[in-house]
């Protein structure tokens, strides 16, 4: 069989890739321009090395603080998801108890419900607890998820039955089986769920925008939105903020892309 030519694919993919990254390059360029430079006709495609846009952003919104908030929330949500989802997923996949099927169906049903349905009552719960404008308001609802439970259950189901039986004969209780035997074996699933959770938690906007109105307690996504409110269409400043806010997740992705993509592909095949 002759080797197929690959250059037509390269031509199309390269053109597409340019469309994909041009906005990012453009964002960095404009973040280094002055306001009048950003309002030229035709557009100025080179930076004017206006570094002061970056300190200006940090002066206008507590960006450093919001960065720390975002990291704390993301870490806590991800750790919580991994622990709680894997516990529940293990129980659903490997243990038998009355009502297992029915409870699992309730979990699944929640995957169908749009997130907006939860927002108002959750807001009222947070208000009642006096948790508005706190980080735990962002963390608490985020650590629970039907999706993660479902995803990890699929991983636990693929493990051979003999594993638990052997361990049980050795006198291990289910907690020990879960923690010492099963969890290490579903590491690819944990990694996939972890990366997906990081990505979602880092970017989420609507809930943080609603519960935390104090700039000191905002995450970067909401911070960017409030920067927009302050600077309207002063794009050099807005882009300086955007660059700072999106860089960490892009960096994480470049390092972990294989695992993240494997995780997403998995949700496609098992979902």
């Amino acid at each position: 069989m002759s080797r197929p030519r690959t250059w037509p694919a390269h031509v199309i993919l390269t053109a597409g890739a340019l469309v994909m990254i041009a906005p990012f390059v453009w964002q960095v360029v404009v973040s280094l321009q002055t306001l009048p430079d950003s309002l030229r006709v035709p557009p100025k495609f080179t930076p004017s090395w206006e570094w002061s846009n970056f300190p200006e952003v940090f002066r206008s919104v507590p960006l450093a603080r919001q960065f720390v908030n975002t990291v704390l929330v993301t870490v806590a949500v991800t750790a919580g998801q991994l622990l709680l989802c894997s516990m529940a997923a293990f129980a659903f996949a490997r243990l038998r108890f009355p009502g297992r099927g029915a409870i699992f169906m309730v979990f699944l049903a929640m995957l169908m419900v749009p997130g907006e349905l939860f927002i108002i009552p959750r807001y009222e719960i947070m208000q009642g607890l006096g948790w508005l404008n706190t980080l735990q308001a962002l963390i608490a609802p985020g650590v629970f998820g039907a999706f993660g439970t479902f995803l990890l259950r699929q991983f636990f189901l693929t493990l051979p039955k003999e594993l638990d039986e052997a361990a049980r004969l050795d006198g291990a209780n289910p907690l020990q089986i879960y923690w010492h035997i099963m969890l290490p074996l579903v590491r690819p699933g944990l990694l996939a769920l972890g990366l997906l959770t990081v990505m979602w938690s880092w970017s989420s906007l609507l809930w943080p925008l609603i519960v935390n109105t104090d700039p000191e307690m905002m995450t970067l996504s909401a911070g960017l939105a409030s920067l927009r409110g302050q600077f309207q269409t002063n794009f050099p400043i807005l882009f300086a903020g955007s660059v700072v806010a999106s860089l960490p997740v892009i960096a994480l992705f470049v390092f972990m892309q294989r695992q993240l993509i494997a995780g997403i592909a998995f949700t496609g095949s098992k979902g």
Binding site: L72, L83, Q136, I139
Partner: peptide, 24 residues
């Protein structure tokens, strides 16, 4: 590399505490 339950729990608690401290 083995990731132990108490350690993970403590980490989570520490993060939560860091969040709570700031509102007093």
């Amino acid at each position: 590399m083995r990731f132990r339950l108490p350690l993970a729990g403590l980490l989570g608690l520490a993060v939560l505490a860091a969040g709570c401290g700031s509102s007093s």
